[in-house]
Design a protein around this nucleic acid. Structure first.
Length: 246
DNA sequence: TGCCATGTTAAACT
DNA sequence: GAGTTTAACATGGC
């Protein structure tokens, strides 16, 4: 479920409740649901892997983590393990196995909407600036940094690096500027491809790197390595993906 | 059937 | 106190 494009799909599924009054709200997610009850939803937005449900005076943030699920307009009452349940005059939304928290402060002040790779407000120049201050990072860590590339997850990381032929262990500061530019473009582009493929149920069959054993370009075996600060699975071709160094 | 993973946080360590 | 490692969360696919 949980990379940026999947959250766009979630937002599209729940946007029907914008402008509707929440008749009841409860759940074991730990957020204060009382401030939602009786309020009208002003807006529902996504930022990277997070979904925000906004009412007057309060915003709830939902993060599906690794295994989060949801259901919209389910006939039955939710499972007792529901983390957040929202009831409307017509319809409902239930979230499971996710993190539910309250945002304190004005969302437009607290959140950096321009960091969302899939947003209309995405600001690649700002991302480039942030990248510069992380020059000693591996690119595979930097791409997963939600402050820089909100919404990018491990699948997207693998696919983008393969598509731009960049070795995942390259240090950010060693990457030629024009390649950084290409990475910005390709990251956003692949996110939208991911979105369409996910909707069509064809995501997996379009993977060129993630979980692959053979390079489709040169036919040599892929490398599989747990890379970076968080030791995430990384699939790459030693032959086709260039390692820059000085 | 058991292992592993599209993620993040916080506790437990050095 | 800093940085690093591990555990926890919990479901579904292979």
């Amino acid at each position: 479920m949980p990379e940026g494009p999947s959250i766009i799909i979630l937002k599209e599924a729940v946007i029907q409740f914008r402008g509707k009054v929440i008749l009841d709200a409860w759940g074991s997610g730990g957020a204060d649901t009382s401030q939602l009850v009786g309020r009208r939803i002003i807006d529902i937005r996504s930022l990277g892997k997070q979904l925000f449900i906004m009412v007057r005076g309060a915003t709830v943030r939902i993060h599906l983590l690794m295994f989060g699920t949801y259901s919209v307009n389910e006939q039955d009452r939710p499972d007792s393990r529901v983390r957040l349940a929202l009831k409307f005059r017509k319809g409902s939304v239930y979230f499971y196995t996710c993190s539910v928290t309250n945002i304190t402060g004005d969302p437009d002040e607290v959140l950096d909407w321009a960091s969302d790779v899939m947003s209309d407000q995405w600001n690649p120049g700002a991302a480039r600036k942030k990248l510069k201050s992380e020059g000693d990072e591996l690119i595979s860590d930097a791409l997963l940094d939600q402050d820089i590339f909100a919404g990018v997850g491990n699948i997207i990381k693998n696919e983008v690096l393969y598509r731009i032929r960049l070795h995942p262990e390259t240090l950010v500061k060693e990457i030629p500027p024009r390649l950084i530019g290409l990475m910005m473009k390709e990251t956003r582009k692949y996110c939208f491809e991911f979105l369409e493929q996910k909707k069509a149920g064809t995501l997996k069959q379009h993977w060129e790197a993630y979980t692959k054993k053979i390079c489709r370009r040169c036919d040599l075996p892929f490398s599989k390595k747990y890379i970076g600060r968080t030791k995430r699975r990384t699939f790459y071709c030693e032959n086709c993906q260039v390692y820059y160094y000085s």
